[in-house]
Write a protein that binds this DNA or RNA. Structure first.
Lengths: 336, 336
DNA sequence: ATGTACTTTGACACCGGTGTCATAATGTCG
DNA sequence: CGACATTATGACACCGGTGTCAAAGTACAT
């Protein structure tokens, strides 16, 4: 079976390559009769244009790359699913590329990625969306990109994020309204901007409700389940034990719940536990976790959609959006 | 800043394109002096070969596609991580493509994928690795592929799987050795070959230990948490209640655990619960789930590695391997 | 010095499309 | 019916690499 190329189609249809190309791209200036004839030959020969050749001629690949370095697998899955939705809508494909934020190698690594597979654009997810170094590099390389959940102020690049600070504020307020005063807090990964935002949401809520902020109630996590388990030990050993724990994501909250349950503490009677993200695990465990629903898929979907629009028309206005985070109450929190 | 191409390098170095190409690909028959000179120019101009042009000339993309349709997100994450490891080892990249097994559209969808991004090969994960229709199609299209966790007998294509039946057998035997006789079973998704294998492992263990198999103790799930929750309801309502539940994966087991806990049953004192896969959730909940560790990453890693070897040298012997699954006991199972 | 074998090098076509521009065909109007 | 504008079409270069093959250069034996 011989390969069907634009040449064979042209020959078979008795027209020039260029005319075939015109039909292929729905360009004007082809007579209806010719167009019909060529389309017919497409069908007859089952012709499929070679995307690589096309890519070479137009300097495009129709592939978007997704950069991530995140201990929370469910976050990544959600990111991917949002990104894929946008990609497929525009007939793009998604290439995934986990890599480490730290080290000299980041830039080199991304550079390598760009040279081994001509990407049309990149979606940056935390913590990459906050890496000024990376962003500067991409700008010098003229690689279009979009930031997801980034806290960086940069009017010149696409950004879709959600209101972390307000979410954390609301969740803390929820705990306060239940009568809690000793609310422990587990911070996220230092490299993620969300970490600071969630923390200040927590602090501000305490402040505005006249509750003293105590450094001793704060543990440092990194968004991984493991770090949550470590922090849980610290927190549950505090005397007197806090009556509520607010972890910066659901994985860490799940770790607290596990340790508490292991220690025969009743949740929420003895201690309330809340997380952030509304990851699947929040509803897969008992009691279900009160948390903040962050529209991860939607953020990424919008970011990638805008990225693709930007790619097809660089004059498109730069899209910047903050989506709402919303409180979800489940069984893990109750009145003191 | 002008683009640096093989032409500019050639001109600058005062040699022909072809010689530059030779140096680029480490081909023989270049004098040491010339090679050195060209390498020097590479550095000076910061030259990076254009992968698309290369792809066109060699008809290669250095991209592997990963096909999946799986309700278990953690399974997908693990698949991806194994696949990425192999890809990066050989300087390939990974493109992910979720799509639905059902419907006429599968073939069309994959066809579309192949035409929009010339992939060098495909990794098929369950349930695609068991789709004879898809496999036949890929063979007619001459697209190299590797099957992960496939039950299909096909000597001519790469396959890496794990011993599902034996794993299920061992887990069931473990429960029997703890004194359980009424062991409920939740089946997985009908389209996955693992479903039948795990089920027969369970049945054979009962048989060999002289325990009567009861259809009434079997529920039909589909590997999703949700289906596990439904099955859990059926099973916990059986009178007398089974003393142990073996779910075909950890998500469904977690759902059983949640419902049991909700109903104030003590696990494992009142009822033992076991899963399959050793997904992260198995150790993120309390009590931790006894389960079968399936080397998902390793299976995929080997499959992709072999796929790439196959691509670079089609005469490579077809690799077929069955990895061991292994019992992990945690707190969710105990003597009756 | 000559013949032979091997290494090094470059000219040129090619991969399968797209962009530019000249030319041919057709339409419009006075 | 001629002058001119507009539409349809194809020839050809080009994107940035790789494959083929012939020619030039070098080494060594005779």
């Amino acid at each position: 079976m011989k390969k069907v190329t634009i040449n064979s189609v042209a020959e078979y249809a008795g027209v020039s390559k260029k005319t075939v190309s015109r039909v292929l791209n729905n360009e004007p200036n082809v007579s209806p009769a010719t167009r019909e004839k060529v389309l017919q030959v497409f069908k007859e020969l089952d012709y499929k244009p070679n995307p690589i050749a096309r890519g070479l001629a137009r300097n495009k690949s129709f592939i978007i790359g997704c950069l991530y370095d995140n201990p929370s697998k469910s976050y990544i899955t959600r990111v991917q699913s949002g990104a894929l939705e946008a990609c497929h809508k525009f007939n793009y494909n998604l290439l995934i590329h986990p890599c480490e934020l730290r080290g000299e190698e980041l830039i080199h690594n991304v550079d390598q990625l760009l040279t081994t597979s001509r990407l049309d654009g990149l979606v940056l997810t935390p913590p990459f969306s906050d890496s000024q170094e990376l962003i500067d590099f991409l700008k010098t390389q003229n690689v279009p990109f979009a930031r997801v959940a980034s806290a960086l102020e940069d009017e010149s690049s696409i950004s879709v994020s959600s209101n972390d600070e307000q979410g954390a504020y609301e969740l803390t307020e929820h705990l306060i309204s239940l009568g809690h005063k000793d609310i422990a807090f587990i911070k996220g990964h230092r490299d993620h901007s969300a970490t600071e935002k969630r923390f200040s949401g927590y602090q501000n809520a305490l402040l505005n409700h006249g509750i003293e902020f105590k450094e001793s109630l704060v543990a440092q996590g990194n968004f991984s389940y493991h770090s949550g388990a470590d922090s849980a030990k610290e927190i549950l050993d505090i005397e007197p034990m806090p009556t509520a724990v607010f972890a910066s994501n659901d994985y860490m909250a799940a770790a607290v719940l596990k340790l508490a349950t292991q220690r025969k503490l009743r949740v929420p009677e003895d201690i309330s536990i809340a997380g952030f993200d509304n990851a699947p695990i929040a509803r897969h465990i008992w009691p279900g976790l009160t948390t903040i629903a962050q529209p991860v898929e939607e953020m990424t979907r919008q970011a990638v959609e805008q990225l693709i629009l930007q790619i097809s028309d660089p004059s498109t206005e730069v899209y910047q959006k903050v989506l709402e985070a919303k409180l979800i109450t489940r069984e893990s929190t109750a009145a003191k």
